[in-house]
Design a protein around this nucleic acid. Sequence first.
DNA 1: GAATTAAGATTACATCTGTAATCTTGTGTC
DNA 2: GACACAAGATTACAGATGTAATCTTAATTC
Lengths: 127, 127
Amino acid sequence: MMSKQIQISDAEWQIMKVLWQAPGLTANEVTEQLVDLQEWHAKTVRTMLSRLQKKGVLEATVVDKLYRYTPLFTRDECIGEASSSFLSRVFDGAFSPMLAHFVKTSPLSKKDRAELERILSKYNKEN
Amino acid sequence: MMSKQIQISDAEWQIMKVLWQAPGLTANEVTEQLVDLQEWHAKTVRTMLSRLQKKGVLEATVVDKLYRYTPLFTRDECIGEASSSFLSRVFDGAFSPMLAHFVKTSPLSKKDRAELERILSKYNKEN
DNA sequence: GAATTAAGATTACATCTGTAATCTTGTGTC
DNA sequence: GACACAAGATTACAGATGTAATCTTAATTC
């Protein structure tokens, strides 16, 4: 479980996404993954990695004299953190108004809605 | 419509919530509303109000020699902004994974779920 | 009218973020 | 072994944020 109060910033999320996809990359490998998408300088990526390590979100292990970075929390854990922080900031922590908002404003395809209904009914049965 | 790139911080959201509830309050009135909930100093509230005004989120009009603050955007507009920013940061902008996450992890009551299903089916009919 | 207040303006200051540049050091090259 | 290069460490620096304190000024009170 994430020990609360760990904040992952916008830019840091980009880094984390890469490392959840491929844990254990080196700084350079992370940079390569990002260069296509982002306009980040290699130095910038290194800064992010260090900060994330300092925050305790990443672990750096030396392999062949190079640091390899690995997330210490799962994507789901971090999503949970970010979500509840967002939820309390914007919706005072109330789930259903938030869901209602998203369902109302989102461009859900028929398929998306079917999926959601499936999930809902599944959870209806369970509790 | 909010002109994008307006960011409302955590603390600022607290202020905004008060003013959406009761537009046109003075700084002191806002402070009063918040003192029960938050531990904010009156000076802090004033700083927030000024910043929000500077950001163009609030408008300050002088009434009887006192500033009265009014939101320039509706709550829904700001929710929309915050949501899409959250959505793109955490879920790469993909709605249904986000919804699925929330539905799975949220402690929805039977009533909440019923409400959601109602909304879903309503939107199913519409498009 | 001198002193006190209270509102608002200005300033403060540490931390976090985005975005790197510079410094240090070990390693490989001639 | 002197030199260059690359990885990592340290430093930079402006804007945002949280959280106020101080300064200015106009109105209020003796």
